[in-house]
Design a protein around this nucleic acid. Structure first.
Lengths: 182, 182
DNA sequence: GAGGCCATGTAATGAGTTACATGATTAT
DNA sequence: ATAATCATGTAACTCATTACATGGCCTC
């Protein structure tokens, strides 16, 4: 069910073809929130359209179809976002690895954690760049239109990666301490 | 494939029955890392055993079987943990909602974000309690045995929830500013 | 015209959820 | 005895990935 709403949300921000959506999934949302391949996206777009939640707003070259959200679709999306639905099972292989570090020898775990720090820092830096760009762009056109979802998402990533880096550094410290003091 | 390693990791920390594993999944790991139901766990335990990665170390009442990791299993787990395998598609409905907040009116988004702050703070507090308990427990028995995976995991959650709360507060601020300042 | 990207589709397989089903043990 | 919990299993279904497949458009 989540894929439906992911698609509705992305299309609500801006109409797009299945191809474009596939790539938007591959960009950022994929890392934290949800991932999907084109083989799942195309059929779902058809189903959404059959259900009256999306519609083809334009047809272009190479048989491309640009989809947009209908009034019913927007309402379904709003409803879903406002329903509090308990936070259910996450799936994140990266985090799973962190949870299982106990199976490694301290020096091996160190190596993994150092990679986590490096990776998190790199991602955080990248997002800082994105944010800077977004802010510049925004200062150009006067009044911002409501909520800037792209900025919220980028900032979320920045907060999470910073936390992840901090945690990994704390964990390294922990290992060092138990190695020397232990 | 991840389920295999999740099970190997949990069993490596401590042998357990399928029933116990089901509940460990339902506890904490489930929220950040991976979730699974018993209907998936039991068959996988059998497959792991067929593949020689786990073994039945005890049989108890009610036909219960306690599984442990074999040498081959430990090796497979280590290998997986040390392989850097690119961080692939996460799935987290909670985060997905945050990414799609742009579809809501500012006041609606406010309400959602306030719930995020409340929820994250509550979780962070709960984890702080867990950590305090773990630290007390550890100060009891002298030398800690290598890496305390439970503590790492709890601390990870604490860092992430704090970041999530901070982010949501920043986002609320952002909405307020764009509402007044325009 | 060749290579690369745009654009969509489907079939086979694997992973995960829900629902159905059963029975033993323990606590009240 | 009766309810709760322990403990496992399987069948039907849905969701997701991988692989196969096709063709149009654009640039060089």
């Amino acid at each position: 069910m989540s894929l439906r709403f992911a698609l509705l949300g992305l299309l609500d921000a801006r109409p797009a073809t299945g191809y474009e959506l596939t790539h938007r999934f591959a960009e950022g949302i994929d890392r934290y929130a949800w991932s999907a391949k084109h083989s799942q996206i195309y059929p779902e777009l058809r189903r959404l359209t059959d259900d009256g939640l999306t519609e083809v707003v334009a047809e272009g070259a190479r048989g491309s179809r640009t989809y947009g959200v209908t009034a019913a679709g927007r309402e379904a999306l709003r409803e879903w976002l406002l329903s509090k639905g308990g936070p259910r099972g996450a799936r994140n292989e990266f985090v799973l690895r962190l949870f299982l570090l106990g199976a490694l020898e301290p020096d091996e775990a160190r190596a993994v954690l150092e990679r986590v720090v490096a990776h998190s820092d790199r991602q955080a830096d990248e997002l800082a760049g994105v944010l800077e760009y977004l802010q510049k762009e925004r200062s150009g056109d006067g009044a911002p239109a409501g909520i800037d979802a792209e900025e919220l998402a980028a900032q979320y990533g920045a907060y999470i990666y910073r936390a992840s880096s901090d945690w990994a550094q704390w964990a390294l410290d922990q290992i060092d301490r138990s190695a020397s003091g232990g």
